[in-house]
Computed example of a mutant assay.
Amino acid sequence: MSANETNRLANIEVSGTHYEVGLQLGRFAADLVHSYTLPSDVWRKVMEYRDDSRVQIMRRMVEERFPTYWEEMRGMADGVGVPFDDMVLWHFRGDVWEMPPEGCTTVQIPGDEPIVAHNEDGSPAQISRCAMAKVQPTGSKGFTSFIYPGTIPGHAFAVSDAGLVATINHIGAKVSGIGLPRTLLGRALLDCDTLDDAIDLLQTSPRSGAYHVTLAQAGDNRIFGVEFTHLNCSVRKIDYPQCHANHLIHQGISDERQDITNSSRARQKRAGDLVEGTANIDPLAVLWDKSDPDLPIHTTDTLATAVFHVGKKSIDWSVYDRIGEPPCYSSHKG
């Protein structure tokens, strides 16, 4: 496994114990975490919560409920070369502190063989240590996930060996509280056996922060969109083509206080217009749309676009890191 110096999305493979998985991922990204993440205002702000009483309770919750992911974070800390307590707190960043606005747009197309497609938006400064990571932890389900430097997998997009597709969108909910951090819930989705198990995990777990999750699985023609916050969890079966950006839109939960950026509002409307009443939708045409030069769907922060064809026995999927170019990653998971 080697670091990527080309500003293209790397492909890496890691395996071993959960600690060893975290260690390898940490070593892969260590230089960028030290040069970019640690000096950042976001890191400094999150570290101000070291003594927050919520953090101590949430640490205990994670260690008790998710001991294997606790070990992944321990390995990540050692691989990066930062104190373990700081690494754990970094994984709570969207829960204990109101994060700056983040992007991502998802297209959901139901049918006998559904399609899920997703723009992953983040900081372009991180792209050299982002990657498509094929991960095989000892004694647990394997998966392939988009990863960010310094964070364990599960908070972008992924496909597990159970054929489960999960895509994640940031939600800027104003209310958070004591519960399991959203990043760790995203990681736990990759160990679920079925769609129903994944939904049950999100519905029944005590939640701290907020995400939108799209879920699909090979052999099951259902797609679900899940909006969860500290206070509520809304599950919507997708029965017609829809899109989701970065704010709550489900009836009964969208009244919660939240940050809605101009970009999220514009992407939600434009993507919805493109799929509404349209036959033979091309998800790439939707996610690569730049018809609004000021508030496009595909932004300067779009790091990758993934398209998942959910079949009866397999997931055929591709990841693109350049508009109009061949995919940088393709897989037949079945």
Rank of each mutant, 00 (worst) to 15 (best):
E72I: 00
E72Y: 11
E72K: 12
M73N: 10
M73G: 09
M73D: 08
R74Y: 08
R74F: 08
M76Y: 04
D78T: 11
V80E: 01
G81H: 06
D86S: 12
D86L: 11
M87I: 05
V88D: 07
L89S: 06
L89F: 01
L89W: 02
L89A: 06
F92Q: 09
F92G: 05
R93E: 14
G94A: 09
G94R: 04
G94I: 05
G94V: 02
D95C: 09
V96D: 05
V96P: 01
W97V: 10
E98T: 14
E98S: 15
E98A: 14
M99D: 09
M99I: 12
M99Y: 14
M99T: 12
P100A: 08
P100G: 10
E102Q: 15
E102C: 14
G103P: 00
G103W: 00
G103C: 11
G103A: 11
C104V: 03
C104P: 00
C104Q: 03
C104T: 02
C104S: 09
T105F: 04
T105Y: 05
T106H: 04
T106E: 09
T106S: 15
V107Q: 07
V107Y: 03
V107H: 02
V107N: 06
P110M: 02
D112L: 10
E113P: 00
E113G: 11
I115H: 03
A117L: 08
N119Q: 08
N119W: 00
D121S: 04
D121T: 04
D121C: 07
D121I: 00
G122A: 13
S123K: 13
A125V: 15
A125N: 15
Q126I: 15
S128A: 15
S128H: 09
S128L: 03
R129E: 08
C130N: 06
A131V: 04
A131F: 00
M132I: 13
K134V: 13
V135K: 04
V135W: 00
Q136V: 12
Q136H: 15
P137Q: 03
T138A: 15
G139A: 07
G139R: 07
G139S: 08
S140H: 15
S140N: 13
K141H: 13
K141T: 13
G142N: 09
F143A: 08
F143I: 11
T144K: 05
T144A: 05
S145T: 11
S145I: 01
F146D: 04
Y148H: 11
I152D: 00
I152H: 06
G154C: 03
G154P: 05
H155K: 14
H155F: 12
H155W: 13
A156E: 07
A156C: 14
A156V: 07
F157N: 13
